[in-house]
Lab assay of single mutants.
Amino acid sequence: TEDEKKIQELLKRANGDVSKAEKLAQSQGNEELARRLREYANK
């Protein structure tokens, strides 16, 4: 999905570090994506 692409892109930029990727999403003002990242990471 589009969200998964965004999540994978963020994870790439954060070198696979979920908490960093989450902070990136939040810094972009994207709380929804940050929440999805957390769920994605907890799979």
Rank of each mutant, 00 (worst) to 15 (best):
Q26C: 15
R36G: 04
R38P: 04
K23G: 06
A14N: 04
E22K: 03
E39D: 11
V18N: 02
Q8N: 10
N42R: 10
E39T: 01
A34Y: 02
E4T: 08
A21N: 00
A41Y: 13
G16C: 15
K43V: 12
G29M: 04
K20N: 06
A25F: 02
D17Q: 03
E32V: 05
K5L: 11
R35Q: 10
E9S: 04
I7D: 01
S27P: 01
Y40C: 11
A25G: 00
A21P: 00
Q8V: 12
S27D: 14
T1N: 12
Q26R: 14
A21F: 01
S19Q: 11
L11K: 01
Q26T: 09
E32S: 08
R13C: 15
E4K: 08
K6S: 11
R38Q: 06
Y40I: 13
R13I: 14
G16Y: 10
K5C: 15
E2S: 11
R38F: 03
G29I: 03
N30A: 05
A41C: 14
K20L: 15
D17Y: 02
D3A: 09
V18A: 07
L33H: 01
G29C: 05
D17N: 08
R36M: 15
D3K: 05
T1A: 13
A25V: 03
N30K: 05
Q8D: 08
Q8M: 14
A25L: 10
E31N: 09
E2R: 08
L11I: 14
D17V: 05
K12N: 12
L37D: 01
T1R: 12
K20Y: 12
K23E: 12
E31H: 14
K12D: 13
Y40H: 09
A34T: 04
G29Y: 08
K5R: 12
L10Y: 09
S27N: 10
K23A: 13
N42F: 06
A21M: 03
R38A: 06
K43G: 11
R36L: 15
A21Q: 00
L37Y: 00
E4H: 10
K43M: 14
N30I: 04
E31Y: 13
E9N: 05
Q28F: 09
A34Q: 03
D17I: 05
R36P: 00
G29E: 04
R36S: 06
E9P: 00
L24H: 05
L37F: 03
R36K: 15
S19I: 12
A21G: 02
N15P: 00
E22N: 02
Q8R: 14
Q8S: 08
E2D: 13
N30L: 15
E32G: 07
